[in-house]
């Protein structure tokens, strides 16, 4: 390659590296905040779980459609993706898995419906002509509960009115900055309520049924919100790692290019000297 081309490539790679490095740092900051958000959500979720568990396990008389399995005519899939790409395998992981699961479980489009968070997911399912029941995009890097509330309560409502008879949720669970696990969770009907500890017997005002009526939808909504917060943390972590890798690669590439640039330059100099020496020798 010519000297000038090499120089141009080095410059271009340097500029790309600047961008990826900036994105890495932005994601690191976002990850920090996302972790804090997830942390401040924990007390609410714990309390919610405790109360639900104490009602649902404590009394045999408590019945609610959200606690009972019914024959499945239609399955709902709640899929959490990001709005932007450049996050490594973050979206591909979830989408590939959901796509395969749906292909395995269902023969016709009437048997399932998808609710999707994030632009990448919306485009993926639209492109494949799969039925999207509802979607939300542009929830930002640090979604507050108010932003999520609408789609969460709508989703729970769709189960309540019988649009689908079970609901699965798919998202990346944040483990650490370099690891996230694809998670499949059966959200509705609510089945596995584990009680953190044996709780006191409560009095219910007005009655257990009426409290369940109020509590269970809110419980399901908070599960969705929790998953979105978890997914956001995983997204930022994934983007940070992807951008770190990109920066490292760019660095290596620049190193290699600089080496060949210098070699090329040295060769040119050597050639010039040889020519001069040769020219001088011819004159003697």
């Amino acid at each position: 390659m010519a000297l000038r081309d090499l120089k141009a490539r080095i410059d271009a790679t340097k500029k790309t590296m600047q961008i990826t490095k900036a994105m890495e740092m932005v994601s690191a900051a976002a990850l920090n905040r996302a972790e804090n958000n997830a942390k401040s959500f924990v007390p609410y979720m714990d309390k919610m779980q405790e109360v639900v568990a104490s009602i649902a396990t404590g009394s045999k008389s408590a019945r609610h459609p959200m606690l009972e399995t019914r024959p499945v005519k239609k399955t709902g899939y709640f899929v959490i993706t990001s709005d932007r790409g450049l996050a490594g395998a973050y979206n591909a992981n979830v989408l590939r898995h959901v796509y395969r699961t749906i292909q395995e479980r269902h023969k016709s489009e009437n048997e399932y419906a998808i609710i999707v968070v994030g632009k990448v997911g919306v485009n993926f399912f639209k492109h494949r002509n799969m039925p999207i029941l509802d979607s939300i995009t542009g929830i930002g890097d640090q979604p507050s509960f108010a932003v999520i509330k609408n789609i969460a309560s709508k989703t729970v409502g769709l189960y309540a009115d019988g649009t689908f008879d079970e609901l699965y949720m798919y998202y990346n669970h944040f483990v650490s900055a370099i690891q996230s696990d694809l998670t499949e969770k059966k959200l509705l009907p609510i089945s596995d309520i584990e009680s953190p500890k044996a709780t006191a017997a409560y009095e219910y005002e007005p009655s257990e049924e009426e409290i369940l009526e109020e509590l269970l939808p809110q419980y399901a909504e908070s599960l969705i919100y929790g998953a979105i917060l978890d997914g956001k943390a995983a997204e930022h972590a994934s983007r940070m790692t992807a951008m770190k890798n990109a920066t490292d690669n760019a660095n290596e590439l620049i190193g290699n290019l600089t080496l060949s640039y210098n070699r090329e330059r040295q060769a040119a100099i050597t050639q010039e000297i040889t020519e001069i020496v040769g020219g001088a020798a011819a004159l003697e």
Binding site: N37, S40, F41, P43, Y44, M45, K47, S144, F145, S222, Y225
Partner: peptide, 9 residues
């Protein structure tokens, strides 16, 4: 007393 919301206490 604690008053908690999904966005924190």
């Amino acid at each position: 007393v604690s008053i908690v919301t999904p966005d924190g206490p």
